[in-house]
């Protein structure tokens, strides 16, 4: 039985978008580097990975 509503992966996408805007909005307050990249950009790369997972979730349904 399908217990997961089909809108859940889309809510994950929405959460990723909100997080992206928050990360972008807060990025100027501090600009630490890690491995030669600003941490806020690395956070975006992590969000991109999250978006890919959400896409895979949508694809399974």
């Amino acid at each position: 039985m399908d217990v997961m509503p089909s809108r859940w992966p889309w809510l994950a996408v929405l959460a990723a978008v909100v997080l992206a805007l928050v990360v972008h909005g807060q990025a100027d307050s501090a600009l630490p580097f890690w491995a030669g990249m600003p941490v806020w950009v690395l956070m975006f790369i992590a969000l991109q990975a999250g978006l890919t997972l959400a896409a895979a979730w949508i694809a399974r349904r």
Binding site: V13, A20, V41, F44, L47, Q48, L51, I58
Partner: peptide, 21 residues
Amino acid sequence: GIAYYPMMAFGTGLAALSFGS
């Protein structure tokens, strides 16, 4: 500057969601 990258990459990733829906 580097701000161009997340805007394009994340935006394009979002756009791709339309392929499977």
